[in-house]
Design a binder for these strands. Structure first.
Ligand SMILES: [Mn+2]
Ligand SMILES: [Mn+2]
Ligand SMILES: [Zn+2]
Ligand SMILES: [Zn+2]
Lengths: 145, 145
DNA sequence: TATACTAATTGTAAAGATTATAAAGTAAGA
DNA sequence: TCTTACTTTATAATCTTTACAATTAGTATA
């Protein structure tokens, strides 16, 4: 079922001059099955059992390739490391400031914000990003002792 | 005229147990007069004429103090270094992806986005961030050769 | 299947930003 | 002026990410 998206990704890679390697396949598979938004190090640690000699550079190299063909999106939150999302459809994230949990959040609008910004600043607007911060239900409950 | 905001900031620091030092004063003054959104290194370089022996750690230490009392805001853009904004009133930023220029942008709404996110995710929402990306007028003109 | 070409991986070094630490200096109140 | 706790300085350390060169290995072709 979820392998459908993975298969599509593999096909789209094959259609370019990107070679398939066991490491590359494993990284892609891990990303497409991930329910979270893993860091490069998460991926590296998750696969070190299967590929004891894999270099951390391989993880970064592949993430760059996947980004370039549009298969994954990089989420850059100020502190610490980038996170990667194999869901490239338009969606936002709600982030818990206490435990770091990241939840997908769909919202329709915000096109008008881009339009207004374009008018006011004379920029040629291409995209925007938005995140919502707060406390997840679990962390919020804990804080009410 | 702009010294009014600076004076308020100095007073608010004095009202706590934060001591005033020449370095601290200079960093704060630079931030409050800055029209751009400088990085820690920008500040460090701008003041090295006046304080040849100032440590880069002093810049970071003070920025942390200023953040803690709410005098400045840290802007974390994925790649490279954080930027700092002495304008802590609610506003957004429009960023040029070519030259890095950052322009302030005021927009009223987005409270409903927080409300909806709260309902959908059961998070206790505290804040949100949004930036708009594109090409500034100058860079856009250049690309049309 | 063997060959050849080129991309990919590996291991390590390097870069860049930020933080930690300890010693020395100094602001501010008594 | 004295005292004390806060601050600065200098430097090392940490963390993430990238660069590099040598080795390995996909894939197209004969
Ligand atoms: Mn997501
Ligand atoms: Mn601003
Ligand atoms: Zn949480
Ligand atoms: Zn520009």
């Amino acid at each position: 079922m979820e392998n459908h998206r993975l298969q599509e990704a593999l096909d789209s890679l094959k259609s370019t001059k990107v070679r398939m390697t066991p490491q590359r396949h494993a990284i892609l598979e891990f990303l497409f099955n991930a329910k979270t938004h893993p860091t490069a190090d998460d991926i590296y640690k998750a696969l070190e059992g299967k590929f004891p000699n894999m270099s951390v550079a391989t993880v970064y190299n592949n993430l760059r390739v996947f980004k370039e063909v549009g298969l994954v999106r990089e989420l850059t939150y100020g502190d610490s490391s980038s996170r990667f999302d194999s869901n490239t459809s338009d969606h936002y994230h709600v982030i818990c400031e206490d435990c770091g949990k990241i939840v997908d959040f769909h919202y329709p609008g915000l096109d008008e914000v881009e339009t207004l910004a374009e008018h006011v600043t004379n920029f040629k607007v291409k995209e925007h990003r938005m995140e919502i911060y707060g406390a997840c239900p679990e962390c919020h409950k804990l804080k009410q002792h």
